[in-house]
């Protein structure tokens, strides 16, 4: 494992205005449909034994471009947000090599916890005009929604299924160092 230069120290939390958590799945075989998880918080901690990343989101805030689709995604067919309102992530390892980052950890959705691996880039630190120090962490992972108990689908008239099983989760996080 290598470290950033200059080294990342302390505790960093998301600037939610400048951060986005999204999901995307193949739709109608040919295109991609996306949605967002607006209410979430992530924390990056740099300790003696390296970096840890944790995150938590309120699944009841999941939103897409269509209210019917949003509701279906929150229904028992998908996230079942009534019984499982929280989506969680906790890293087991965070490896940084230059700007490349690999985060392995456990993702909990719909009450099911599965290992996932995010890959992406970690940039910074950079100081903003107000004296805050910021890091950019952009990463994505591919999961099979069936692993989390979300098996809904519908056949298309010309063959094939309307919704892909592979879902890309992406996090675009702007992290601000907390005062010591």
């Amino acid at each position: 494992m290598s470290t950033l230069a200059p080294p990342v120290t302390g505790t960093w939390t998301t600037d939610t205005v400048h951060s986005t958590v999204e999901f995307a799945a193949r739709h109608m075989v040919v295109s991609t449909f996306r949605g967002r998880l607006p209410a979430f918080q992530a924390v990056l901690r740099a300790g003696d034994d390296g970096l840890t990343l944790t995150g938590e989101g309120d699944a009841r805030t999941i939103v897409t471009e269509d209210e019917n689709l949003t509701a279906h995604l929150q229904a028992p067919d998908f996230l079942d947000t009534q019984r499982h309102p929280t989506i969680r992530f906790a890293s087991r390892s965070v490896r940084v090599d230059g700007e490349e980052v690999t985060v392995e950890g456990d993702l909990t959705m719909r009450g099911v916890t599965r290992p996932v691996e995010f890959r992406g880039e970690l940039r910074g630190p950079a100081e903003d005009p107000y004296g805050n120090v910021r890091l950019g962490l952009e990463m994505s992972a591919r999961v099979d929604r069936g692993d989390f108990g979300m098996n809904w689908n519908a056949p298309l008239p010309g063959g094939g299924l309307v919704l892909g099983t592979a879902v890309t989760l992406s996090a675009h996080l702007e992290l601000v160092r907390q005062a010591l």
Partner: peptide, 8 residues
Amino acid sequence: LRTAGARA
């Protein structure tokens, strides 16, 4: 029912 959000 499931599309409507019921727990069928």
